[in-house]
Simulated assay, not measured.
Amino acid sequence: MPGETRRPLAARIFVALASAVALLLLGAALGLLIRVPSFDSAEPQPTAVDIGFAQDMSMHHQQAVTMATLARERAADVAVRQLAFDIETNQRDQIGRMQGWLSLWGQPAQATGPVMTWMTADGGHDHRPSATGAPSGAPMPGMASSAEMSRLQSLRGPEFDVYFLQLMLRHHEGGAPMAEYGATHAAVPAVHQLAQNMLASQRNEADLMRTMLTERRAQPLR
């Protein structure tokens, strides 16, 4: 008799514990479902800054890719060729991403009006860098003129290396304000992140190019 009463009691305790555990697991599962954000949550819509940055930086990058491709084939120094390869690879990838965004947003690949007007989007203040000292005909700061590109194409050997480093350093420095503005004012997270990545990588490359010019007893272009 005592054993018979203990068995049902033990069984009842087991069932009660099992039920409690099941309820806890169910509650935890429901809590997770409540906390997980919906995949339908809308991403911020692209603003004039996102669109203008993607359009103008694509154009700016394209000239860098052209110069880097030339350097990869003609540079005398293997270190210059490696730098050119890195720049060409990174900026081709970035152009692809920016052009992909523009296509998704239903926007043209290039701006149809004046460049860099998106840097005046916050209350009318003009944050564009001064074009003072830029080559005649350069659409954006840092970009080489047609005459400078022709001269680069005509050079060979160590002279080519120096001029390439000078042009590319100025190109990086000229594009930095656009990347800074994009990193600060872009609404789309992917655009903001890409602009930040550009700043970091190009600052490192610019430091390297200054060192390489110093080693060759050459000065940056002004």
Rank of each mutant, 00 (worst) to 15 (best):
F85A: 15
A16E: 06
G27Q: 01
F14E: 14
A144Y: 00
M178K: 08
A68Y: 03
E180R: 10
W105S: 09
I87Q: 02
A11V: 15
G96H: 03
G175Y: 05
H61R: 01
E205P: 00
M149H: 06
R156V: 13
R35H: 13
L83P: 02
D86M: 14
N204W: 05
F85K: 15
T117Y: 11
L30I: 08
S154A: 15
R151P: 02
E43T: 12
E73Y: 11
I95Y: 01
L199W: 03
R72V: 10
L24A: 13
A11I: 14
I95N: 00
R151D: 03
G106N: 00
A76D: 14
V15W: 12
W118N: 00
D122H: 08
L155R: 06
A79M: 14
S58C: 00
H172S: 02
V36T: 12
L24D: 09
R35P: 09
V49Y: 03
Q153L: 08
S150A: 15
E180C: 11
H171S: 15
R222C: 08
Q193R: 11
R128P: 06
R35E: 07
S146Y: 07
A195M: 02
A218F: 02
A10E: 12
G31M: 05
L167E: 07
H127M: 10
A138H: 03
A138Y: 02
R12Y: 06
R203V: 10
E4S: 15
G133Q: 12
E43G: 08
Q110R: 10
P177H: 09
Y181N: 12
D40S: 14
A183W: 09
V80G: 01
L165H: 04
S130T: 08
A28V: 08
H185Y: 14
M212F: 05
S136W: 05
R170N: 11
A71V: 14
H127L: 05
L30N: 11
D122I: 07
A187E: 07
S146F: 13
V36E: 13
M67D: 04
R151L: 12
A200M: 06
F85S: 15
G124C: 10
H185W: 13
G157E: 07
P220G: 01
V49F: 04
P2L: 05
I95A: 00
R170W: 01
F85N: 14
T117Q: 13
R217M: 10
T214L: 04
Q153V: 09
Y181T: 06
T66S: 15
R156C: 12
L30D: 08
R222G: 11
A68H: 03
Q94M: 00
